[in-house]
Each structure stands twice: as structure tokens, then as C-alpha cells.
């Protein structure tokens, strides 16, 4: 299992692995917002948590189809399915590797982009916390979507259509947590809801995704 995690991280970091791509995408999307909305500080500060969360969500989406599609194309997925590693564990590890190469870096650069969007400095910590708690759910849900579409040629668009609606609860509570934190309001409810979503997806979706992969390998 450790070998699989290290391999996935290595593949992501090496040339053509897509690491940095989603980070750059996040950067560009959030930088574009002031150009579209206008430089008025109050407006930007108000929408900053939502924009940052949307940006994180979209850049997460960008690399989802790589989770299983590449392994399917070169036959690795068949070989993993016949290996002693349980498919549930493979899914969980691959989602973890996806998070480590997208969600985690996004969490660390988010405050810098918060500055660009005039987010109140008191909100930086809450923004990072909300992303740290919420982005694992994005990777897990994404891995489930990728597992459903793994057998399809060019299933990327279908994957987005499947996964984006499932991202709604995470987006709502994540952005709400960051917004309340920035405005100094009580944060316990969205915090607990967000943590609950992440834990729930971590508990259930590896099993659902593994079942979907087994069906798709037939």
C-alpha cells in the first residue's frame, strides 16, 4: 500500500504528471475574478471565500480523470485487481495521493490568493482550515466518479457532470466555514458538517468505488 502511494506521488511529480497544473489553474482562476468583478474591495472581500472554494473545487476536478484512467490504459488496474492489495485500499490510497498533490498544496497557497481578493486577515486561518478539512472529500468523491467512468473513452466530461453535483454539500459548508471565520461569526456548525462529510465519504466511497471498478473491469 505504501508502495502504491509512493508510486502515485512519484508519477504525479515527474514530467507530465500534472502536479502543479491544478495549482496554476487555481492561481489563474482566482486572479481572473477581480478582473471580472471589478477591483472594489468590499465586494471582493465578501465573495472571496466562495471564489476561493470554487477555484479549489475546479482545480481539483482538473486532475480527477487521471486517478484511474491512466492505470486502466496501461493495464496496471487489471494487475492491481489481481494483486493481494484490496481494491478498496487501492481506491483509498489513490484518493489520498490525489489529495496530497492537489488539495494539500491548494490549502497552503489559498491565503496568498485570499490577499489578492482582499479577504480579511482574520479569515486566513479559517480558510486554510476549511480547505484542509474539505478537500479530502473532493478527492474521495472524485475518485468515486473516476471509478464509475473508468471504462469509458474520453469520460472526462461525463466525470465532471457526475461529480460536480456531488460537490455541492462540501462547497456549501466549506465556503460557509471560511466566510463565517472571516466575519468573526460562530463556525461550529459548518465545521462539524464539513468534517462529517469528509469522514462519511472516507468511510463509504472507497467501497462504492471499488465495486464500480470491479464492474468496469469485466
Amino acid at each position: 500500500m505504501r508502495a502504491l502511494l509512493l508510486r502515485d506521488l512519484r508519477l504525479a511529480i515527474r514530467a507530465g504528471g500534472g502536479f502543479g497544473l491544478s495549482l496554476a489553474f487555481f492561481l489563474i482562476v482566482t486572479t481572473l475574478v477581480p478582473f471580472g468583478v471589478g477591483p472594489e474591495g468590499g465586494t471582493l472581500a465578501r465573495i472571496a471565500p466562495g471564489i476561493l472554494w470554487l477555484g479549489a473545487l475546479l482545480s481539483c476536478l482538473l486532475s480527477l480523470d487521471r486517478i484511474f484512467a491512466l492505470d486502466r490504459e496501461d493495464g496496471s488496474l487489471d494487475l492491481l485487481a489481481t494483486s493481494p492489495a484490496p481494491m478498496e485500499g487501492v481506491v483509498a490510497i489513490k484518493a489520498a495521493a490525489h489529495w496530497l498533490t492537489t488539495g494539500l498544496p491548494l490549502t497552503f497557497v489559498a491565503p496568498a490568493l485570499g490577499l489578492l481578493l482582499n479577504l480579511a486577515p482574520s479569515g486566513y486561518g479559517w480558510l486554510m482550515l476549511s480547505l484542509a478539512i474539505g478537500t479530502p472529500a473532493l478527492s474521495l468523491i472524485g475518485a468515486f466518479g473516476a471509478a464509475l467512468t473508468v471504462g469509458l473513452k474520453r469520460g472526462g466530461l461525463l466525470l465532471s457532470l457526475l461529480v460536480l453535483p456531488l460537490y455541492v454539500p462540501t462547497l456549501i459548508y466549506g465556503a460557509e466555514l471560511a466566510r463565517r471565520g472571516a466575519e468573526g461569526l460562530p463556525v461550529l456548525t459548518p465545521l462539524l458538517m464539513l468534517a462529517g462529510i469528509t469522514l462519511g465519504t472516507a468511510a463509504l466511497l472507497p467501497f462504492a468505488a471499488a465495486a464500480a471498478i470491479r464492474v468496469n473491469l469485466r
Partner: peptide
């Protein structure tokens, strides 16, 4: 072992 080797090009 099938037609596909499960070989990663960048490793």
C-alpha cells in the same frame, strides 16, 4: 499478464 504490461513510462 495481458497485452498491456502495466509499465509506467516516467518510472
Amino acid at each position: 499478464s495481458s497485452h498491456a504490461d502495466g509499465v509506467k513510462p516516467t518510472l
